[in-house]
Structures are given as C-alpha cells and as structure tokens.
C-alpha cells in the first residue's frame, strides 16, 4: 500500500520494477463482476436452471460415454425395478431406462434448439421485412402471422404434422413454423419503434442501404427481446416435441426420446411405475430450468414482456 500513487498519474509514473500486483495497488477501482454473475449469485432459481441445463447438455453430448448400457440393447430382464445395476430400472423390452433417458436428451434438446433457431431466423426476417417496408408486404406477412397467432403453437404444430406427415424431419419443420409467429411479432414491433430513431435516420441520410440499416442498426438493438423470447420458446418447443412423440407423430418407435419412452410406458405403468415417472421428470426438470433461466434473462436484459406468457 505504501507506494500507492495518486490516481491520475498512476499509469505514467511507475518505475519499471514496481509493476503493481493488483488493480487496487494500481489505484484502479476493483473490477466488478459482470452483471450476469451478479444475477446468478442473487437468483438461486437461475443458478439451479443453469446447472441442470449444463448437466442435461453434457449428458446429451456425452451420452455414448456416460450411459451405462446401449439404449437399444434388449439384454436385461424385463421391467426390473430401480437397483444398483439399473438405477432407473428396465423397460418392457429389457432395455436400461437410464441409458435411454440419457440418449433421449439428445433428440429433445436438439429438436428444441434447432426448431427455435430456425423459427427465430425466419420469424425475425419476416418481422424485419414487414416492419421496415410496411405497405402491402407488411399486410401480407402480418395477415398470416395473425392467423397463426389465433392458435396455440402446439396446435399449429399438430396441424402441420397432419399436413406434412409424421417423422422427425417433419416434426422439426412443423415445430419451427409453429413458433415463428412470436419472433415475427417481436421483430416487427422493434423495427417500428426503432425506425424513426435519430441514429437510424442519420444512417439513412448518409446513404446506408436498407440491408445495412436493418442488419447493423436495427437488428442489434432488437436482439435482447428476441433472445428472451428464444429461451422461453425452447422450453415450449421441447414440450411440443415430447407431446408429438408421445402421440406417436414424431420420431420412429425405436429412437429413444422422452416423449416416446413415456408413450411406451403407458401400457406398463400398473406394473412398472418407474417407466412412467423418470422420463417425465427429465422433461419437467429441463423445461423448469429453461423457464428459470428465461426469467433471469428477462431481468438481465430488462425486457418488458412482449407476449402474454399464456401462449405455447
């Protein structure tokens, strides 16, 4: 502390051998932890969500290494209750339930993230176009978006599967399309509020192209609400995929996904409660964690809610 210097001249007057060892020594204010760290420290729910999600993601990525058995191997006794060898028991075909749930995380998380990613890209693009150009393009796009808005996302997804047919690819397309209306609405609302901002007007008067204005000046400022929406949407998309798989509209019957495992379990729950309990627990934990994180993100970005939380 003895060689503490007045702040203003600190940087120039240090002799080479007396390099300060900490920021305090250099007379600089202590580095503040980033805001998200503070949010996590204060918001235990968000911390819980983050940890669970990290765990789920890790189990999805590393499933081949951490799963105790092959999820498709029918080599054990059927309907074994949870035990040391099979922590979550086995199913009606003698497959290890824990391994199936770990592998199931792959499809569920993948579909949730990919569908929302697609929905976000297409939806934001449509919303930008509608809001920026207005006129007939706006009417055309928004008429469709409003039509879709009249129905819950899950119902739209079921309708689209009815039209496109069942299967994983079709489910991905259906869920992506079903969720794009939320993003289009947010993007359009943001464009409308930003379009007349002075910095946008000045960019335009400098001769910036429409593409540049939209991409460089409007989109970055519209990002926060889009990200918050995306988080919420991922949880609903995971629920939607699980629901579709549960109804038999999703992946092929051999693929382990949470919805499908639950669907298979229905016949056997009178004899094997674990089949009915654990896959659903995995879905709920994931969705709950995303919802917790979504709430924290909303606080972090200070985003007011653009939609009622009742739609999914």
């Amino acid at each position: 502390m003895k060689n503490r210097q007045p702040r203003a001249s600190a940087a120039v007057q240090y002799p080479a051998q007396a390099v300060p060892r900490s920021r305090e020594e250099a007379g600089l204010p202590r580095r503040r932890s980033p805001r998200w760290v503070k949010v996590l420290r204060r918001d235990k729910k968000a911390l819980f969500g983050l940890l669970v999600l990290l765990g789920m993601t890790a189990s999805a990525i590393f499933a081949p290494w951490i799963a105790p058995y092959d999820p498709r191997a029918q080599e054990f006794e059927m309907l074994l209750p949870p035990s040391a060898a099979h922590p979550l028991g086995t199913d009606d075909l003698g497959r290890d339930l824990l391994s199936r749930i770990l592998y199931g995380a792959r499809i569920s998380l993948f579909v949730g993230v990919v569908t929302v990613g697609l929905a976000m890209i297409v939806g934001v693009f449509l919303g930008l176009l509608a809001g920026y150009y207005g006129g007939w393009l706006d009417s055309l796009i928004m008429r469709y978006i409003d039509l879709q808005w009249a129905f819950p996302n899950f119902i739209i997804a079921v309708y689209l599967v009815a039209i496109f047919g069942t299967g994983l690819e079709n489910v991905i397309v259906a869920v992506s399309l079903a969720f794009l209306d939320d993003f289009a609405r947010i993007a359009r609302a943001m464009v409308l509020s930003l379009r007349e901002e002075e910095y946008v007007l000045s960019a335009r008067s400098l001769g910036a192209s429409d593409l540049r204005i939209m991409g460089k000046h409007i989109l970055p400022n519209a990002l926060a609400p889009v990200i918050v929406q995306a988080t919420v949407s991922v949880s609903y998309a995971i629920l939607a995929e699980a629901g579709l798989s549960f109804l038999g509209l999703g992946v092929k019957p051999t693929t382990p996904t949470w919805g499908l495992i639950l669907s298979d379990a229905r016949t056997f729950i009178s004899r094997a409660w674990w089949l009915g309990v654990f896959p659903g627990l995995a879905i709920m934990l994931t969705v709950l964690s995303i919802n917790f994180l979504g709430d924290a993100l909303r606080d972090l970005f200070d985003v007011r809610e653009y939609r009622e939380e009742t739609k999914r």
């Binding site: 729910k45 949880s235 699980a242 549960f246 729950i269 309990v277 969705v287 709950l288």
Partner: peptide, 17 residues
C-alpha cells in the same frame, strides 16, 4: 413454476398411477 413446466401428458400418467 412446476405446474407450468410439467407436461400435461406426464401429469396424466402420474394421476393414473
């Protein structure tokens, strides 16, 4: 929070159980 995150078809199975 639990009610919102719980898939309704899972709750249905638990109730049957």
């Amino acid at each position: 929070f639990l009610g919102l995150s719980m898939p309704d078809f899972w709750l249905a199975i638990l109730l049957i159980l």
